[in-house]
């Protein structure tokens, strides 16, 4: 029986690859968007302006304090009540962007805060504008602190894309879920799904470990 199901699973492998492609798409687009928004918010948050600091603080707390499943339900079910009807795929990207930016914002703000005050002062007294100070003096140094946890966060975000399957995005998790209805071999099906996720995220974990060792020196 098991070999029969194994044969069926091999037949369905293209279906899994399409799921893998969807997961990659969701992960890739949302990682880029999250990084961009996260960096901008992080720089604003590290600023001393009361308004930005606290407004972004509230957003970060809301995004980090609630589970991603709840957030995705809110995006998918509540926005239609306000007249914004979203397809599953854009809704998934929006939810990922909201959640991921908050985490990356914290990493960036932490990295910038780790730079001693004297660096800002030295940059200011060389006549650099605020933006130039960030661009040429602060960020290059902060990047050393930011990069290792950032790559670690990428791994977490890629794994979180599995949750978008609950609103019907045909990603790898959804493919596994659909398959297990037809092939009642949960261990085999989800071992295969897990293996495909492993193939994406393990290289990034190794990269994160490498960066951590390298930056520590």
């Amino acid at each position: 029986m098991t070999t029969f199901y194994f044969g069926r699973l091999v037949e369905m492998f293209p279906f899994f690859l399409s799921g893998l492609w969807m997961t990659t798409k969701v992960a890739f687009i949302s990682l880029i968007v999250c990084t961009l928004i996260g960096f901008v918010l992080g720089m604003l948050r590290a600023n001393d302006t009361f308004f930005f600091k606290h407004l972004i603080g509230v957003y970060v707390a809301l995004a980090r304090g609630t589970p991603f499943v709840v957030q995705i339900f809110i995006v998918f079910f509540i926005f239609p009540e306000w007249g914004l009807q979203l397809e599953p795929f854009p809704a998934a990207l929006l939810a990922m962007a909201i959640m991921g930016s908050a985490f990356i914002c914290e990493i960036v703000a932490g990295g910038i805060a780790s730079i001693p005050k004297g660096q800002w002062e030295a940059a200011a007294s060389s006549g650099l504008t605020k933006v130039q100070q960030l661009r040429f003096v602060i960020i290059p140094q902060a990047l050393k602190v930011i990069l290792p946890p950032l790559v670690g966060q990428y791994v977490l975000l890629i794994k979180d894309t599995s949750v978008v399957s609950v609103i019907g995005v045909m990603d790898l998790t959804r493919v596994g879920w659909v398959t297990v209805m037809r092939i009642p071999e949960g261990l085999m099906v989800f071992a295969l799904v897990g293996l495909l996720y492993f193939a994406i995220s393990y290289p990034l974990i190794l990269l994160s470990n490498y960066l951590e060792r390298k930056m520590a020196r």
Binding site: K159, T161, S162, V163, G176, F190, V193, Y197, S201
Partner: peptide, 13 residues
């Protein structure tokens, strides 16, 4: 390196 949701489904199914 695998999502928690997959681990839950792995055991559940």
């Amino acid at each position: 390196s695998t999502p928690l949701l997959i681990q839950i489904y792995f055991l559940y199914f």
